[in-house]
Amino acid sequence: MSKVGQAIDKNDLSTAGSVLGGSTDTDWVQKANIAFTKLSSSPDEKTQVDNFNSSLASLISSVTGNDIESSKTAFVSSADAFEKWTTLTGLVGQLKGL
């Protein structure tokens, strides 16, 4: 996600898109969701996973549609949900920098 954020910050949606992939069916998203499922036990954690996935879908759509402002908004929402999830699961220290 940090590479995507850096690319979006530079208005480089081509790079952001190549890192993200074209859909939520990409290998890295599926692997992330497997990890989310294994590591999430509380309803709050699961809510943040849902929020992340929803924001990620919006981010991919915005990047694919070449909409920089929507991409920035969706990226912040995705990062916020991920940060909240890492805090709730106690993994915030281990996952810094992703």
Rank of each mutant, 00 (worst) to 15 (best):
A35G: 09
T73M: 05
A74M: 05
T26Y: 00
F82L: 11
T86K: 10
E69M: 09
G22A: 03
K3H: 04
V29F: 08
S77Y: 00
S62E: 03
N53P: 04
K72N: 10
S77K: 07
L59H: 06
G93T: 15
K31D: 11
E69V: 13
N66P: 12
G21A: 07
K46C: 09
G21E: 07
L91E: 07
S78D: 02
A32P: 00
K3P: 03
S14E: 11
N33V: 04
K84P: 00
N33E: 14
S42R: 11
Q30P: 00
N11E: 15
T47I: 07
G90R: 12
G97A: 11
S62P: 12
K10S: 13
G22K: 06
L13H: 01
Q94P: 02
S41H: 08
S14G: 13
S61N: 12
L95T: 15
F75L: 12
V92T: 15
N66Q: 13
D12I: 05
K31M: 08
T87I: 14
S54F: 13
L98F: 15
A35P: 05
S58E: 13
S23A: 00
S54Y: 10
W28I: 00
V76R: 10
I68R: 03
K72F: 12
G21V: 02
L39I: 12
D67P: 12
V19C: 03
S18F: 00
G90N: 14
S42P: 05
L20Q: 01
L59D: 10
T37W: 07
V63P: 08
T24H: 06
S71R: 05
T24P: 00
K96D: 10
V19S: 09
A35Q: 14
S40D: 06
N11I: 01
S77I: 00
K72I: 07
L88R: 04
T15Q: 01
D9Y: 01
E69I: 09
T64C: 05
E83I: 15
Q94W: 11
L95S: 12
S78Q: 05
D27G: 05
L88C: 04
S70P: 12
I8D: 03
W28H: 09
N11G: 03
V63Y: 06
K3A: 09
L88I: 07
E69N: 15
S55V: 03
E83Q: 12
F82V: 05
I8E: 00
V63N: 08
A57W: 09
D27T: 10
G17Y: 00
A74W: 02
M1N: 03
K96P: 06
T89R: 09
N51T: 13
V4Y: 04
Q30R: 09
K72R: 15
G17V: 03
V29S: 06
V49E: 09
G22S: 04
Q30S: 10
S70R: 10
I34E: 15
